[in-house]
Write a protein that binds this DNA or RNA. Structure first.
Length: 846
RNA sequence: GCCGGGGUGGCGAAAUUGGCAAACGCACAGGACUUAAAAUCCUGCGGCCCAAAAGGUCUUGAGGGUUCGAGUCCCUCCCCCGGCACCA
């Protein structure tokens, strides 16, 4: 008895072994071919992968395999983002060291990747938790420190009470911890920062180099960096004396509205506030109010829904353009983190100022009038923030507010009352973590010499093994005496080590550089090699890293560029962000219990079926709903293609000339479509559809026992099986049929590599299908003698006309106007116009 | 609130970028093969009118517009998803 279905188990094992043996994914450093660096975001080693994760690796594998077939020298490495909280949290519960659980997980995941048929150059594997890797993470810290880009300061930082550590701004989502969704506190702590703000402008400017990044990712980064241009203006304090400041500086992007300022507001954290209220008769009351605001949670503080509360300080400032006296307020709606912590309030033209003014009955003055209807402050229901004409603004009246914006700024700079400045929302990157499972920050504190960095030759600062994991608000490393107690690298007297570890995003901000020389013990990377291999040609990963990882990596590479370590400004030339796999309406997660494990599916249908379905489910950049029935369809198709090959020796087309040329046309149209999808959009779903159409066509032009000769004809493996197989009357397969089957196999290879290899072998090929030439589309084959043109009458589809493909416009027109269906609709009227779209359509207008 | 991305059959989705809407697949229905089932092969499969066929007619979130022709372009509006958000 022959197999009921294609024997995927043997096939997959066989070819996975062969690829490893032949070094299909080994990058050849001496190859003369052009390089292609195909990179997938390295995963965090969690317990196991589900089919949603699989999508990422399968997409990358398809691209890598395609590029191998196109004769590129492909680098497709894999590694592990192996430091991080989940392993440490598990350790707290189970007592098992994070290193052990991490490597156990790595092993599981590696097996899964292998069983998917996903290939990598495993000789280049890295894990960020290994000393030979984090040594260089620490080295990068030292380079930033030397450049003044790593610094320690006391600041209000985000603290997650559950994770017991600080978090970067980027790791706080809606005031909650990105990891555990616990509400984040603000704490004043001394912490290490990377000065990413020094690169804000360049991170913006260099987006020009990111032509092949998704627009939305660039927009998200732009938004996050949040550049805004405006004017800083000094407002003199009325009756300033004693320790009270002489003036208050505020920032505005709407300097055109300055004549409409009716009060000023300070943030509760404003550093000059203390001296302003001292001695005021309501000092106590104000102080109480300030404390109250400061106690508001971060969440409330930054929410637009939070009620605006304010209190008058009893003081006044003077508007420098018109000397108007403005009352000075404190409110929760002004934040110290942005601008100067002081805002000139223009209720007529700012939503928040309007709300506040209404609540505290502060004056509203219109200075930009609506050209569509005069604004009356007494009747306004909301602020007017659109463009308009300047009014009540002294010498700037009657011009457009857009023009006034630059003219007022000019005037202020000339008079020395204000100057143009640019602000960014981007904050410096807080990299200290009070946790164990991370790279130690290579810093030593000496009572005599102060902060000292560890010397490069003393790296790595090893993470000690014997540690109590339970967090207590400070790094668990604090309790490891052998670790903490050290000597000062400068004066050799007793000193203490920094006990915080680095944010794991530091590890992942440079890993793609290490793949180029992963075993180099003397340096983190080799500039010459790096400049050859970078930037990454294709980076593939999830959209969730649009800001965090992708922004940090860009920053670190720019720093390394400035230091002369690398010769490129951007790490990733092309970025592809794949969509999530959804199940039952939400993304797969263990806690929701909706994960689909690939292992069972691979066991039942084989890796190729799972790959096929994952790729066929929809365009890879979009989210897609997983449907187990769809897997069945992929399985059916692969068997259908398989039967074509195993019965091929007895397969012949019906002997018609025209069918042969139809088949050849379909074959070459498929080559064209698949190649376009591979080179352009990565829309593998349509590429696979096209191959399915080709298979359908092959079936259509061959005969089947059930419809023709029954049991006559050459016998073959499958005849005892009752299944219908395509087969011939007699004779041999036509050249066209052979070509189409061969083409089908090659085109399928990047997507379903195991079955493609086996089919390739079964049609008598000795070499691997990945060594075969990718077929070229013969444009000539696409041409047809006669084509069918669609005919519309007044834009409505009314007929189809068969005509020579070489027919000129006149000939087409004649043929169309002769057609009886067309005439039925023209009803003797004279055509006003006949529009001809060549090769496509004719529209007769009457 | 601002900025993106969407809305097409019962479902996943296609549509050479302004030219036959629904390719390809799933589900479903009918047929062939089978004692039977599974598998396989073939056929059908947006709505409405018509007994059926032929034919007609409507249909891409809603409404309007541009055009010989609109899923695709423009305007107004509704809904879903994502990002940012008292950012001055």
């Amino acid at each position: 008895m022959t197999e009921q279905f294609y024997p995927f188990k043997e096939i997959e094992k066989k070819w996975q072994k062969k690829w490893a043996g032949m070094g299909l994914f080994k990058m050849d450093p001496d190859s003369p071919k052009s390089k292609y660096y195909c990179l997938m975001m390295f995963p965090y080693p969690s317990s196991s992968l589900h089919v949603g994760h699989g999508r990422n690796y399968i997409i990358g594998d398809v691209i890598a395999r395609y590029k191998i077939m196109r004769r590129f020298n492909v680098l497709a490495p894999m590694g592990w983002d192996a430091f991080g909280l989940p392993a440490e949290n598990a350790a707290i519960k189970s007592g098992i060291h994070p290193r052990i659980s991490t490597f156990k997980n790595i092993n599981t995941m590696k097996k899964q990747l292998y069983s998917w048929g996903v290939g990598y150059d495993w000789d280049r594997e890295i894990a960020s938790c290994l000393p030979d890797y984090y040594k260089w993470t620490q080295w990068i810290f030292l380079q930033l420190y030397k450049k003044g880009l790593a610094y320690k300061k006391k600041a209000f930082v985000n603290w997650c009470p559950s994770c017991q550590t600080v978090l970067a701004n980027e790791q706080v989502i809606d005031g909650l911890c990105e990891r555990c969704s616990t509400e984040v506190d603000l704490r004043s702590l001394e912490q290490w920062f990377f000065k990413i703000t020094a690169y804000a402008q360049r991170l913006l400017d260099d987006m020009e180099l990111l032509r092949y990044w998704p627009e939305r990712v660039k927009l998200m980064q732009k938004n996050w960096i949040g550049r805004s241009e405006g004017v800083e203006i000094d407002f003199k304090l009325e009756k300033s004396q004693g320790r009270a400041p002489a003036f208050l500086r505020c920032f505005t992007t709407r300097v055109d509205t300055i004549y409409g300022a009716t009060y000023m507001v300070l943030a509760a954290e404003h550093p000059l506030l203390e001296n302003l209220i001292k001695g005021s008769d309501k000092e106590e009351e104000i102080r109480k109010f300030i404390t109250e605001i400061k106690r508001e949670s971060l969440l409330d503080r930054v929410s637009t829904d939070t009620e605006k509360k304010g209190m008058f300080t009893g003081r006044y400032v003077l508007n420098p353009v018109n000397n108007r006296r403005l009352s000075l307020w404190i409110s929760n709606y002004v934040l110290m983190e942005y601008g100067t912590g002081a805002v000139m309030a223009v209720p007529a033209h700012d939503k928040r100022d309007f709300e506040f003014a209404k609540r505290y009955s502060l004056p509203i003055e219109v200075v930009i009038d609506n050209p569509k209807g005069h604004l009356d402050p007494a009747k306004m229901k909301e602020s007017y923030i659109k463009e308009g004409v300047m009014v009540n603004s002294g010498r700037f009246n009657a011009i457009s507010n857009m023009e006034a914006m630059s003219r007022i700024a000019d005037y202020m700079e000339k008079e020395g009352i204000g100057r143009r400045v640019t602000h960014y929302k981007l904050r410096d990157w807080l990299i200290s973590r009070q946790r164990y499972w991370g790279a130690p920050i290579p810093v030593v504190y000496c009572d005599r010499c102060g902060i000292q960095t560890v010397r490069e030759q003393d790296l790595p600062v090893l993470l000690p093994e014997g540690v109590k994991f339970k967090p207590h608000g400070e790094s668990p490393l604090k309790d490891v005496k052998d670790f903490v107690n050290t000597t000062c690298p400068t004066c050799h007297s007793k000193a203490r080590r920094e006990i915080d570890t680095m944010d794991t995003f530091v590890d992942s901000s440079w890993y793609f550089l290490r793949y180029i020389s992963p075993k180099d013990e003397g340096k983190p990377f080799d500039k010459k090699l790096l400049d050859k291999w970078l930037p990454v040609d294709q980076y593939i990963g999830g959209i969730e890293h649009a800001i965090l990882h992708l922004l940090y990596s860009r920053f670190i590479v720019k720093v390394l560029y400035d230091l002369g370590y690398v010769g490129f400004k951007e790490p990733f030339a092309r970025l592809f962000t794949q969509g999530m796999i959804i199940k039952d309406g939400t993304k797969m997660s263990k806690s929701k219990g909706n994960v689909v494990s690939p292992d069972k599916l691979i066991d039942r249908y084989g890796a190729d079926t799972v790959r096929f379905y994952t790729l066929f489910i929809g365009p890879p950049e979009k989210d897609a709903e997983w449907n187990d029935r769809g897997v069945e369809g992929a399985w059916r198709f692969l068997n259908r293609a398989w039967r074509l090959v195993v019965s091929r020796s007895s397969l012949v087309s019906r002997d018609s000339e025209s069918q042969n040329s139809d088949l050849r046309r379909k074959t070459h149209a498929t080559i064209k479509k698949v190649t376009e999808d591979m080179e352009g959009s990565f829309h593998f779903n349509t590429a696979l559809s096209a191959i399915m159409e080709l298979v359908n066509e092959i079936y259509a032009v061959t005969d089947h026992p059930s419809t023709s000769l029954g049991t006559d004809g050459p016998s073959l493996d499958f005849t005892r099986d009752r299944r219908t197989i395509p087969r011939l009357h007699s004779g041999q397969a036509s050249h066209e049929l052979n070509e189409s089957i061969k083409t089908m196999i090659i085109l399928l290879a990047p997507f379903v590599p195991h079955i493609a290899e086996e089919m390739w072998e079964r049609i008598g090929k000795k070499e691997s299908v990945f060594e075969a030439d990718w077929p070229l589309c013969d444009e000539e084959a696409l041409l047809q003698d006669r084509i069918s043109m669609v005919v519309q009458v007044n834009g409505k589809l009314r007929a189809k006309v068969e005509i020579s493909s070489r027919a000129g416009e006149e000939e087409i027109k004649r043929a169309v106007l002769k057609d009886k269906d067309v005439n039925k609709w023209i009803k003797g009227k004279i055509p006003k116009k006949v529009i001809i779209v060549k090769g496509r359509l004719v529209n007769v207008v009457v």
